[in-house]
Nucleic acid binder design. Structure first.
Lengths: 371, 371
DNA sequence: CCGATATGGGAAACCGGTGTCATTTGCAAG
DNA sequence: CTTGCAAATGACACCGGTTTCCCATATCGG
């Protein structure tokens, strides 16, 4: 039967060869799509399948003539190794997992974009896996996911990327991992980070340079490393400028639009009102803008706003938000390359960068305070 | 060696049993994670592995006692069949593909959310696959993706879901598929659609009911079914109200924020200006709002705007946009359930719905025209 | 009581690769 | 002319399931 299939395949192949000459034979194939197997290649090349395997995996030593002959056969037939069979034999799948817990939607998507760019034209595929940080079984869930799917590697998005136990878990089950974050929490091989702190310092200095002295902060949720880092940068920059920051000017946010509105309301009730507000992400900054509008506070004339993330919304509101952009797509790409590593960019020996610089994007939501 | 592995496993298992009593033994496992195999189960239950396989797949006939004993062993050991081995043996993977071509980012994400909800606690995983509609090799790319990964099924997002050749391709390679869209393009088993046309009619009627007569339309890109359907609905509703629509009131858009701005500018140059604009998606509606602001046109006093999609941005701009919401998450869930079908919801025999109703969300961007 | 039929269950091949180990060959060193 | 060693390649078991085929019982009508 194997022999029979092979013959079928060979015929199909020769038909394809002459397809350009013939008037086209749309002859639908049966439900079972015939694909050449490693045995077909071995027979066609007159070698054993182990030798073909050596060519595919560039392992072992083999004669140049043999290699070329096998490569020629592979090229002609369009043979592609069966990933399921390899996964079984190797005990390792060619899948990269993206594990996240519902952070910024836009970020997930940009991250996916970057990762998929890196994975394009490789044998790897991306498997998306949302988890629930609040569930006590989260670690077990992830563990069974990794073990069952025999994942090649995982990319952990913040905030769960900050959980050290997760990283240890990956090591334990022999799964490569890369953690994304707002600051360096792990060695370069396992970390892709943006320098949020520096960016916040720059943003705050920008407000100070414009003449603002009463600057409000809308923080991120407690327990988020990014929230802590951004807040630190803000406080540092103010201290550096010799500005004391009363506790009342710090409002707690949850990284959501609604929490931004609420926090803004509380800051607006202050007497005197802050002349500028730094919101730890764009969603909340948009909330501040929204709240200002509904109160009739003119932006940027009466209130300057700076956000963080440069999500699409920042450029779409009026006035467009001055914000901090971090290269999410590039970071995603880098994370993926770290995992597939030498497999893909074997030619270049340069390590993928681990830290990315964020930059201040100046738009229309900042102006000097009114006298 | 097999025997040895089995023993190791048994020991591990008993340790787990007493873990709650013991003071916890963090003892790291070796890189190779031991998992029970079907052979372990067979031996522990005193049957052949084929019989275990019968239990797992509910196939063949077997004694209740035997079944229960095997199920007990499976439960105790926490055995999960190796997906790679099953995939190899079955010639079919337990992966669902999500194939899309860069449409609305938010939509992709909501869709993913819905699909993942349906896939949660099943054996299926989601593989994301962006493609390039403009590439001539797109179909071949998708074909090789489906064939190589032996996908269980794919979910096609608009606009590529509108390509009939793609659907035929899926059939050909024996891969289940579901197409998402703005109107019904296929039989219920392969289609999940929203009733965009009806929703647009309702939205347009809303504008007409407010007293608007000069209503501009910003269309979607040519070749998109959703664009055509929405435009049809708009024109139908105007005709129904006895309003003639001059060609000049229709501006071409590309579903992007920038194209919305450009289209709005061209409409603003008209004399007299339209008193309302229906933009075929929220991105463009946000562009209209942005353009209006920069021209000093008050919304909704001087201009009413309606968008489509109810993406997050609709609620975050000022004034918040009246728009049409379609239940993307629910549609994603439905699409996934259609594919995993009887596998999951075997208990309930009700078919997953194929069409979903969109609804008008009234916010602040619509008001009667000024006298 | 016998042969026919249905049912439960096992042995072995198979899915398509990879790992281990042995074998053959070529060539330089002793 | 051996011996030694490395390169090149093949035979075969194995990864962990499923499928095919076949046998052993049990049931049952006549």
């Amino acid at each position: 039967m194997r022999r029979k299939l092979s013959v079928t395949f060979a015929v199909t192949f020769s038909i394809n060869c002459y397809a350009t000459v013939m008037t086209g034979t749309p002859k639908l194939r049966p439900t079972k799509v015939e694909k050449p197997t490693i045995n077909d290649i071995a027979r066609l090349a007159g070698v054993s399948k182990k030798t073909v395997s050596r060519v595919i995996n560039r392992s072992g030593s083999l004669n140049d003539d043999t290699r070329e002959k096998i490569e020629a056969v592979i090229r002609e037939t369009g043979y592609v190794p069966n990933p399921q069979a390899r996964a079984l034999a190797l005990g390792r799948n060619f899948l990269i997992g993206l594990v996240h817990d519902n952070p910024n939607a836009q970020m997930i998507l940009n991250m996916q974009q970057g990762i998929l760019e890196a994975l394009r034209d490789t044998e790897f595929e991306l498997v998306v896996r949302p988890v629930d940080r609040s569930s006590p079984e989260m670690l077990d869930d992830i563990r069974s996911f990794l073990v069952r799917q025999r994942l090649y590697g995982v990319i952990l998005l913040p905030p769960i990327s900050e959980i050290d136990a997760l990283a240890r878990l990956c090591d334990e089950v022999n799964c490569k991992y890369v953690r994304m974050g707002s600051s360096v929490l792990d060695d370069p091989a396992h970390m892709v980070a943006s320098n949020d702190r520096d960016a916040v310092v720059e943003a705050t200095r920008h407000l100070v340079a414009q003449g603002h002295r009463r600057i409000g902060l809308i923080s991120g949720p407690h327990g988020f490393n990014s929230a802590q880092v951004r807040r630190d940068g803000f406080e540092f920059a103010l201290a550096e400028a010799g500005i004391t920051l009363p506790r009342s000017l710090i409002a707690d946010g949850q990284y959501t639009f609604e929490s931004g509105i609420a926090a803004a309301e509380s800051l607006f009730d202050l007497q005197p009102r802050p002349t500028a507000i730094f919101a730890c992400n764009d969603e909340m900054a948009a909330g501040v803008l929204f709240a200002a509008r509904s109160r009739g506070i003119a932006v940027p004339e009466q209130l300057s706003i700076i956000g963080f993330d440069d999500t699409p919304i920042a450029a779409r509101v009026w006035p467009p938000l001055t914000t901090v952009r971090w290269p999410i797509v590039a970071m995603g790409r880098s994370a993926a390359l770290k995992i597939i590593g030498s497999t893909a960019s074997a030619s270049m020996d340069d390590q993928e960068p681990s830290t990315f610089v964020s930059t201040l994007v100046r738009r229309g939501s900042v102006a000097p305070p009114m006298k």
